[in-house]
């Protein structure tokens, strides 16, 4: 009897948690409150910053159950932009992103591990240049709440470092530029 009660209680709790399931957010690409940037050393003397202008994605997020969060992002790689026509053309070529063959890069999270009150390691599979590798995003919850226009928003930032060769980007930019840092800030609108 007790067992049945416990089972019932657990069941109703699960049903309740289902009702309070993490909300789904769509990354606010339309309003340009999201950006995917990269940063790479130039010769070891300074850094070049670039960005992907065209991407889409969504995430689920519940502040009470951050571990059950998930995020999916899809990037059109031919939107790479480092504010330099010739360099961007080179980045799109098969020396780098090979956008003709691999027009999309994706990130699909597989797990979230909280590392602090508002920081987490977001593990997921990154597909870039046709190569899929697990990466860990060093993520930070920035804030959430009502926006002034009747919606509800939540935002995060995240960084991770990729080794170019791991993604079959063989072009050698020198010893200081073997890795590239991804710097992502996204704001989602709750659906």
């Amino acid at each position: 009897m007790k067992k049945t009660f416990a089972g019932l209680a657990l069941g109703s709790l699960m049903a309740l948690s289902g009702a309070l399931q993490a909300a789904d957010y769509v990354i606010d690409k339309e309003g340009q409150h999201a950006s995917i940037n990269f940063k790479i050393s130039h010769l070891g003397y300074s850094f070049v910053y670039g960005r992907f202008n065209d991407f889409s994605g969504n995430f689920s997020w519940d502040a009470d159950k951050p571990e059950s969060s998930a995020v999916n992002v899809s990037i059109n790689t031919d939107s790479v932009d480092s504010n330099h026509a010739e360099r961007d053309k080179h980045l799109r070529s098969d020396d780098f992103l090979n956008v003709a063959e691999h027009p999309t890069a994706t990130f699909e999270s597989t797990g979230v591990e909280m590392t602090g009150d508002d920081t987490a390691n977001v593990t997921g599979n990154l597909t870039l240049n046709g190569v899929t590798k697990p990466v860990v995003l060093d993520a930070k919850f920035i804030g959430e709440g009502d926006d002034p226009w009747g919606g509800y928003r939540a935002g995060f930032s995240g960084t991770t470092t990729l080794t170019l060769k791991d993604f079959d980007i063989s072009r050698d930019l020198g010893p200081a530029a073997q890795d590239v840092e991804l710097i992502i800030t996204v704001e989602g609108v709750r659906q």
Binding site: H84, A85, E86
Partner: peptide, 8 residues
């Protein structure tokens, strides 16, 4: 047109 594609 290649080199000037982004206004440079």
């Amino acid at each position: 047109l290649i080199s000037t594609a982004k206004g440079q």
